[in-house]
Nucleic acid binder design. Sequence first.
DNA 1: AACAATGCATAATTAAATTAGGTATTGTTT
DNA 2: AAACAATACCTAATTTAATTATGCATTGTT
Lengths: 122, 122
Amino acid sequence: MHCLVMYFCAMQKSSLYKGCLEPIVLRLLKDNGRMYGYSITQKVKEITKGELQITEGALYPLLHKLEAEGIVETAVESVGNRMRKYYTLTKAGTKQTQAAMEELQAFMESLNLIINPKTTIA
Amino acid sequence: MHCLVMYFCAMQKSSLYKGCLEPIVLRLLKDNGRMYGYSITQKVKEITKGELQITEGALYPLLHKLEAEGIVETAVESVGNRMRKYYTLTKAGTKQTQAAMEELQAFMESLNLIINPKTTIA
DNA sequence: AACAATGCATAATTAAATTAGGTATTGTTT
DNA sequence: AAACAATACCTAATTTAATTATGCATTGTT
């Protein structure tokens, strides 16, 4: 008799620290060139092995905001009978992404100084 | 003639990603044992070399919330004629801090997977 | 036929900041 | 002595950015 019991570790799907979603989306667009909303949610799940999960209620309004700001531009396409709204970075968006990455990087380094203080060697 | 021109790099004093302040405060209290509000703001500035700056408008309400939740307990002391309200983690607070650190750590690792994707070696 | 997955969207609410004040004491500079 | 910066606390109004809970429609799977 097979009795396969599987224990899963918490897999918190921890909610994002607010403000991080935008840089994440910008980065994904930079790396992947051309994405639609749903594919962004899936990509994040894939990369983080399910650890991070972005909600549609946060994502779509953000994408609309980015479009209104000229950071991204859109093109609607039909796959079969289902529509996809593709987003790509504009030139301004690419620049903005660079800045956002530097800011996030700097922030994470600062955070690390606090959270993982270096034990002074010697 | 001396003409000393100094260029400062941006030193953004980047505003926090929301939700990060609580874990930061918990961590500082864990590491330093006993702090008062103003000393927390100074410690963060010191550790991050001025890069991170926490605002009092965010800090004090947070400390009050933590106190109401039983995460920290307070003791008011007078230094000269000036009062200081010292905060220390309660037992529950220490446990909470541990959990917060693990969650933040996990989040940062996930974020790193997205922001600094590993180039597959070989 | 029912359900999960794909794909878009919005509205109401909540959480956590920012911004902009306020009070008072102490130390430093002009 | 006056002015200012630093130390030390606080709060209120507003803004930002999520969550939660919906809704609609198509496609694939059980």
